[in-house]
């Protein structure tokens, strides 16, 4: 995050750390603090004797990498996330744009798009298992469904809020519909689309976590299931950490892409 443009309010409680390294040191330091806190609880055996030490968790990780195909499972998970996310992008962006530029299409699709958001996924996973099996396909399906909503909604919002004035400029030169879409709506949309993609990838990861937990037969979920059946908490925690790692890094990477691609932004343009 940039510290240069902070509001006065935030500046009061922000140490001056323009230097990226200082931020990293602060974040890493806090991580060490959390680890130490956790270790203290594990060492004291409070609130339970059965808190695995960090060493045990690391060992569990090593065992899984060596013997239980953790990396393969991670690979499958990434694969499912990206395919699901990619399909959601493919459908969601054009659909959002069409909803944004046509009131009729908006009214037609709006309830269904919202419905996809509120589906109780945990409850329908059994049905999805029947349709998609317990392998890669159900993972892709859930990631798709999770990623779809933020992508379609952001793309819709961007198209819908395209400034009236810019549309009028194009119209005043008698621009065709296609020209206007390509040169007014779409460029204006890009920050919105990227914001949707960033949220979408985060939701895809959450969908994956859900599916791994519920379809605990193969993949990361299967590993968790095995460990927890054996009451080996260090194993469970190690897999959960892997999932958390994915959950943090993928949106972060997407954020990097976002910063790269954005060469103008809505706020600076004063819309």
């Amino acid at each position: 995050m940039a510290t240069a443009d902070e509001s006065p309010l935030r500046q009061r409680l922000t140490l001056s750390m323009d230097d990226r390294n200082h931020q990293l040191i602060l974040q890493a330091g806090f991580g060490v603090f959390l680890l130490a806190l956790y270790s203290a609880f594990a060492y004291l055996g409070y609130p339970s004797e059965r808190i695995p030490s960090i060493l045990m968790i690391v060992e569990a990780l090593q065992v899984q990498i060596a013997e239980e195909g953790l990396l393969g499972a991670v690979w499958d998970a990434l694969y499912a996330i990206f395919i699901g996310f990619f399909l959601a992008t493919l459908v969601g962006i054009p659909m959002g744009i069409l909803m944004g530029v046509s009131r009729t299409i908006e009214e037609l699709l709006d309830p269904y798009v919202n419905a996809i958001y509120v589906v109780p996924y945990a409850a329908i996973v059994p049905a999805l298992i029947v349709w998609f099996g317990t392998g890669i396909r159900i993972r892709v399906a859930i990631c798709f469904l999770f990623a779809f909503f933020p992508i379609v909604i952001n793309s819709f919002e961007g198209a819908r809020t395209t400034p009236e004035g810019l549309l009028e400029v194009a119209e005043s030169f008698n621009a065709s519909w296609l020209f206007t879409m390509k040169n007014v709506v779409l460029p204006y949309e890009i920050p919105y689309i990227l914001a949707g993609l960033r949220m979408g990838i985060g939701r895809a990861v959450r969908g994956l976590v859900l599916v791994e937990i519920i379809v605990a037969v193969t993949g990361l979920g299967g590993l968790i299931q095995n460990w927890s059946a054996a009451f080996r908490l260090e194993g469970v925690i190690s897999v959960v950490l892997v999932l958390m790692f994915l959950g943090v890094t993928l949106p972060w990477l997407m954020g990097k892409v976002y910063d790269r691609l954005i060469w103008w932004d809505v706020e600076r343009a004063g819309f």
Partner: peptide, 13 residues
């Protein structure tokens, strides 16, 4: 006919 708009309406990108 060409119109010059009240608030410029330039394309920021």
């Amino acid at each position: 006919a060409a119109l010059v708009f009240q608030n410029f309406e330039l394309f920021p990108w």
